[in-house]
Amino acid sequence: MTFEQIYECYADSVYAYLKFKLGNDQVVEDLMQETFLALYQRPPDSIDSYKAWLLRIAHHKMVDWLRKKQLVSDSLPELSSLDPALESTADNLLVYEALSTLDEDTRTIIYGLYVENLRCKELAVMLNLPEGTIKSKAYYGRQKLRSWLGQEV
């Protein structure tokens, strides 16, 4: 795959992840550029999934940025800052409220599993956590989501 093709395929996922975590468009744009520049400057030798690799780099760039700014991202950005169209549906608010009851790692794991189709193994590498921890957090997060969403599920 050429660099252009990789960008075309995965820019949306990288953006969505950073936006979901940070909300701030300017920072998201900068971190997206840094992520794709990292791909250009140090392309991986072998790769099973470009998406997982890019999301891992984006995650690390975000953590570095948060550390530099000495911010802690333990809360979700405002729903309205993600996409104005999202505000209108009650379902989205419910999901967002449910997600806000989870700790940050669990929220990221649930997002990775359900929105980006990542596997536990890929999330373990991305978040620097043992695969067993990812599995148990995924189970716990799903149980919480299920109970929160109640009749919906």
Partner: peptide, 23 residues
């Protein structure tokens, strides 16, 4: 299936103009 559908609804969309600008 239900969780998947609900989670995908909150996925932020990358505006086309921004995608082109970053490219």
């Amino acid at each position: 299936v239900t969780i998947l559908q609900q989670m995908r609804q909150i996925k932020p969309q990358l505006p086309k103009a921004l995608k082109q600008k970053i490219r």
